[in-house]
Nucleic acid binder design. Structure first.
Lengths: 329, 329
DNA sequence: ATTGGGTTGGAAATCGTTTCCACTCCCCTG
DNA sequence: CAGGGGAGTGGAAACGATTTCCAACCCAAT
């Protein structure tokens, strides 16, 4: 029922091999190429990608495995990755792991079966640690999360610097008791925690932070107690947008005015951080550049597999808004 | 280099056919099945999906083609779709069309080459109109956008009712000059416009709306002029979240207090609509149900291709917040 | 006129599975 | 006891393209 390359060949009066070459980049005379193209149009032929992949041993597919596509950071990255991929004539398969190592393992197996051309991956800590032992037969580029060293190319934010900027910004504006909220599932949360501690110590201040599950609900719960404390922080730094939302809810619930009663700063320059009154001070990640860079690293490694491992560390941009206005009291 | 089914067969001392049956659901004795499984583990065999798809004539892949994954409505739907798909052992390919009919045509071709099992599609008006003429060889379920009649299953919001609820809500609270902002790229925008006009007339009020490109920037531009008009609306209904954001920016820019100077209501109950002060009144779409229903329709049609065309119309839920508080003056 | 290099087109092998078909057992029934 | 039927197994074809190999051809140079 399906029209195959043989039907096109018959219609054009040539051999299947010639059709293949005419459609691909093989050497074919100009007139034959035209003939074939006409035959393709008249028959309505569409190549069968499964067959092509099987024979050519190239899936032309890249895997994108992230925690949750609903996290705006990953949403934005995925968009860039897909654009790059389609422009290069490749397809993308997306997987959501929900920070669950078991699902990561499952999808890693699946990706092997797909015979991926390459993969872009934001792993949990657990999987990151054992990624070295696992033999994948395609190149992997890590995004957002990567340990020191490591065997794979990676594109990450300079978390140490970024959180340092945030702390410095707050100190400059007169805040001293600065609390931290960090996600415990990824290396990113831990790196930001480390950067926070280092920055606080640099300023001679006492670090005071909590590690917790990266969800707005968890942040809300935790802050209910924390903000009730008479020694509550004057400012909160939240390590991702979910924790940031939880923080705002908690502040509102406790009747605390921002920034008079509680200053707030976070990560990811989403639209709403500007729409809220007052606007929220955040570190903006260069999401588009992260996506593009990841694809570039991947393509370069595909072209030259022997390249040394590269780790790209990009800087965030501190967007100052009303939530961290100078302390008046 | 790659370990194939023949290697497993040799290791287990059986024929490739038996291995295939042992891994699939063919009839195999229990002992042989165990033998094969041991051989699979010892050889580290992973089936080649390309070969499997070619032979079995089933790609096990569903295509998800939407305007832009960064639109939170589509983000949420995609997450549900992927979960359903993976649970059913299928893969998902995602495409962003940016509301561009040419890209839609391109991806439709691509999807044909993939020999998709099925597709979930949010088309532009242009493509929707000519979708009937185009012969796809896989079932399609439309989401978010669908015309009257139509040849494909669909899951849509009851736009007429939803926008009617919004208008009624505003009228109840004393607003009379209610303006509308509707996207011009999709049938959804037009349906909401129609519902708006009908509702206004039902209340004996004069409709006053604008059709525009669905972007925050476009809304901001347009509202700059509109809000400067002495006859400016007392309330604005925005047909999607981008237009809603543009509206809020414009109101702030013009120094209009919400809701005293301008009431605002929109679509899609995103997190930030609650975080903003005052909260924004919106229609919440049952995104998860939409995704699940789309997949159900698709699976049922795959099982029974002769089913009559079904169109599921789901109701939204009006979430009232401060942006439409009762008019006092 | 013959040789040789460079194109061009066709036949056939190949990719890794699944599936069809034939065959063997073995049990059950008439 | 013979024959029918079902389950389990192996061999080989088939899926639809790409790619390799080789024959045929053209043209120029010896």
């Amino acid at each position: 029922m399906g029209v195959g390359i043989k039907d096109v060949a018959r219609a054009a009066g040539v051999s299947p091999a010639t059709v293949s070459r005419a459609l691909g980049k093989g050497p074919v005379s100009e007139e034959l190429r035209a003939l074939v193209e006409a035959a393709v149009r008249s028959t309505g032929y569409r190549p069968n990608l499964a067959a092509r992949r099987l024979r050519s041993q190239d899936s032309g597919t890249i895997g994108l495995v992230v925690a949750d596509i609903r996290n705006p950071f990953f949403t934005a990255v995925s968009r860039v990755v897909e654009d790059c991929a389609y422009r290069a004539g490749m397809r993308v398969i997306l997987c959501n792991t929900d920070e669950d190592p078991e699902r990561e393992a499952l999808y890693l197996r699946l990706m092997q079966e797909e015979r991926l051309t390459g993969m872009i991956f934001a792993p949990t800590r657990a999987t990151l640690d054992q990624l070295a032992h696992r033999a994948l037969d395609f190149p992997v580029v890590l995004i957002d999360r990567a340990g020191p060293g490591g065997q794979h190319d990676a594109v990450v934010l300079d978390n140490h610097e970024a959180v340092g900027d945030l702390v410095a910004h707050l100190v400059e504006r007169g805040y001293r008791r600065i609390g931290g909220l960090f996600g415990n599932a990824s290396t990113t949360g831990l790196q930001r925690r480390d950067g926070y501690v280092a920055a606080m110590q640099r300023f001679g201040l006492q670090p005071d932070f909590r590690l917790l599950a990266p969800s707005a609900e968890a942040a809300l719960q935790l802050l209910r107690a924390w903000l009730a404390d008479p020694q509550r922080p004057e400012a909160i730094v939240a390590s991702n947008s979910l924790l940031l939302m939880g923080t705002l809810r908690a502040a509102r619930e406790a009747g605390l005015a921002i920034p008079q009663d509680l200053a707030v700063a976070g990560f990811d320059n989403e639209n709403w951080t500007e729409l809220v009154e007052p606007g929220i001070t955040v570190i903006e990640q260069p999401v588009e550049e992260i996506g593009r860079a990841a694809m570039s690293l991947l393509f370069e490694r595909l072209k030259t597999p022997t390249l040394p491992v590269r780790k790209l560390v990009l800087s965030g941009r501190c967007v100052a808004r009303g939530s961290t206005a100078s302390r008046t009291s």
